[in-house]
Write a protein that binds this DNA or RNA. Structure first.
Length: 363
RNA sequence: GCGGGUGUGGUGUAGUCUGGCUAACAUGCAAGCCUGUGGAGCUUGAGAUCGCGUGUUCGAAUCACGCCACCCGCU
């Protein structure tokens, strides 16, 4: 299911295989919450070389509903994507005003579209993710917002652990189940959580509750504590991380899997990745810049158009601007992941990382 | 020619009747932010001698008078 085939210090290459679908780690998953990435097609994502995406099991459970997807033959068939599909459980939606109340039994969500109440238990979460046909599913977890007091984080963590046990107990075949480490920004809690989740012997381990406003230093400190206290033979997934510099640093810690809305979201807001750093294409200095975003980029935007043209498209609010930007940023991340894997295989990861970060500055 | 209306940052407007905190709001402009996605979000900044002039007043975008520009109607 997961096999490490190459290692350069803590950074490593692995093969994740589920239900006959394979992906080489480290990889990044574009977010495809409702069975499609925004503005671009899943086929475009696939053609870039992505071997995995993440959808949101909970949001799909609300709409269009598990039955429809099940009767279509599962998510893979429905969206015509025959690579790995991860699903999230709905835990993250708790910090997004979705949630009404939670207790030991589960969480009550209110569907903002129609006011309907849904009570989700850990068992439900595993069930609907499996019914959807997920290759890798997440435990239902309790995610305290950044800034939550320690006493509250402690009781929240207790709940996450309790739910993790129940998910594990309920899970019976189908996709791989990932346990999620929480603990907010508290060192002792992170360590405790990592050990606890590790001991439950999940198929994979997720590091959750980071990158939600705590700042980079704390984030990496917490991530390292998590990595250092779990088995090194399992796929390790850092949830929600998606900037080039963060991915690179996390791979160095030993993280295998990433997902984030970040590349797509900032693309829609006029921010693009380049090897020299992020640029905001809407600013004046690009009005007369007739060169492509990146000289050797394979994306549709770079192959055909200039920065000035893209700048123009944004200024006139043409939706195509967001589409092209999204294609570019996702292509950039995929290129980065390719380079990361290559450099690990050649035992040159440290050199690659250093070089990349040296060049990657704010332009 | 007569009567009526309107004139406020680039644009669209509020404030005017019942003068008084640093002239407000939207959009646009300039820049920054966004990290397990509820269809263009958040923060900051620049930009107006309130059509022009005179007067009344401690104080005028606001009141009075004159002028100018545009719009509507009537001869």
């Amino acid at each position: 299911m997961f096999k490490i085939i190459n290692q350069d210090k803590d950074a490593r290459i692995g093969i994740l295989e589920v239900n006959g679908r394979k992906a080489e780690t480290p990889f990044f998953m574009p977010v495809s919450t409702k069975l499609t990435p925004k503005l671009i097609s899943i086929k475009e994502v696939e053609n870039m070389g992505y071997k995995a995406v993440i959808c949101n099991g909970f949001i799909l459970y609300l709409n269009p509903g598990v039955d429809l997807i099940k009767s279509s033959g599962g998510m893979h068939k429905f969206m015509n994507f025959n690579n790995l599909i991860f699903t999230d459980s709905g835990g993250f939606q708790m910090i997004m005003n979705f949630e009404n109340k939670r207790n030991e039994k589960g969480v009550e969500f209110i569907n903002p579209l129609n006011g309907e109440k849904h009570f989700i238990t850990p068992e439900n979460a595993v069930e609907f993710q499996n019914d959807l046909g997920a290759d890798c599913l997440m435990c239902l977890d309790d995610l305290p917002k950044h800034g939550t007091k320690k006493e509250e984080v402690i009781s929240s963590l207790k709940r996450t652990h309790l739910w993790a046990e129940r998910c594990k107990k309920f899970h019976n075949g189908g996709g791989l189940l990932f346990g999620i480490i929480q603990g907010n920004v508290f060192r002792d809690l992170r360590k405790e959580s990592a050990k606890f989740i590790n001991n439950l012997n999940f198929d994979g381990i997720s590091i959750g509750g980071l990158c939600i406003g705590e700042g980079k230093d704390l984030m990496f400190e917490m991530a390292k504590i998590c990595v250092d206290n779990v088995s090194r033979y399992k796929p390790l997934y850092l949830m929600g991380v998606g900037s080039p510099e963060d991915i690179l640093k996390a791979v160095d810690l030993g993280v295998d899997i990433f997902d984030s809305k970040f590349p797509a979201e900032i693309a829609r807001r006029e921010s693009l990745f380049t090897k020299k750093g992020r640029i905001n294409i809407n600013i004046k200095k690009f009005k007369n810049d007739f060169k492509p975003i990146e000289e050797n980029c394979k994306c549709e935007a770079c192959k055909n158009f200039s920065k000035a043209y893209l700048h123009h498209l944004f200024k006139i609010k043409e939706p195509l601007a967001k589409r092209l930007s999204t294609l570019h940023n996702l292509q950039f991340i995929q290129g980065l992941m390719d380079n990361i894997r290559t450099s690990i295989k050649e035992n040159e990861f440290q050199k690659f990382k250093k070089e990349f970060l040296k060049n990657y500055k704010k332009v």
